[in-house]
């Protein structure tokens, strides 16, 4: 129970942001390394604009496809509120890599709770800890790449550089992109993996990685 060798990663976002595709990419990258992989994700009703997540477990020692609370090594979030929503799953000392651009739901404009971005960001800074939090400037990445479509890949690249994906490296991800992404989007996704380097604002000591 205590000594599992696998790396537990949670990908979180909003339906349509590509969480499922990102988990496939990450799984593929790990399998290229010869690691066994288990994943679990949201499919169905929740895809219609709802919160979505993928649990990805890389390496030996995973039995269940779901990660327990407090047992995730990393949370990679395509949207900051979703990072906070998944935070109970993060282990002590775990890493969070998140986009800083909110996706505001219809409910916030039609009587539901408002989207308080500054409260959400300061909660992340306070409770994840500066050295374990990497915030990706998603607007800058979008401007560089000319589209928001590859945000999922941008975040994966940032997570790999932050060392959040365990044994999976940026090169593994690039190999997985080459193996799985259709030629039409290949250049975009490779650029998203690599060019995003300049758009990642790591909180203090993460910058060194």
């Amino acid at each position: 129970m205590s000594e599992r060798r696998c790396t537990n990663v949670i990908l979180a976002g909003v339906g349509g942001q590509g969480a499922v595709l990102a988990s496939k990419l990450l799984a593929r990258a790990a399998m290229e390394r010869g690691l066994p992989v288990k994943t679990a994700e949201t499919i169905g009703m929740a895809q219609r604009g709802g919160s979505v997540f993928s649990h990805v477990r890389l390496g030996e020692g995973a039995v269940s496809p779901l990660i327990g609370r407090g047992r995730a090594d990393a949370i990679v979030a395509f949207e900051p509120a979703e990072a906070v929503r998944q935070l109970p799953f993060l282990r002590a000392g775990g890493v969070v890599v998140t986009s800083d651009v909110p996706v505001v739901p219809v409910s916030a404009a039609t009587g539901g709770p408002a989207y308080d971005l500054s409260a959400i960001m300061s909660y992340l800074h306070e409770h994840v800890g500066e050295k374990n939090l990497a915030v990706v400037d998603a607007a800058a990445a979008e401007a560089e790449l000319g589209t928001a479509r590859a945000l999922n890949v941008v975040l994966l690249g940032a997570a790999a550089r932050a060392g959040a994906l365990g044994p999976v490296t940026l090169d593994d991800l690039a190999a997985a992109v080459r193996a799985t992404v259709s030629p039409r989007f290949l250049d975009l996704d490779l650029a998203a993996l690599h060019r995003a380097k300049g758009t990642v604002t790591f909180a203090r000591s993460c910058v060194q990685k």
Partner: peptide, 19 residues
């Protein structure tokens, strides 16, 4: 050991919606 998570700020709700 239970690691308590401090109460998060109010989060937006995302019920599924028509596209």
């Amino acid at each position: 050991a239970v690691v308590p998570t401090p109460a998060p700020p109010t989060l937006p709700v995302r019920p599924p919606v028509l596209c």
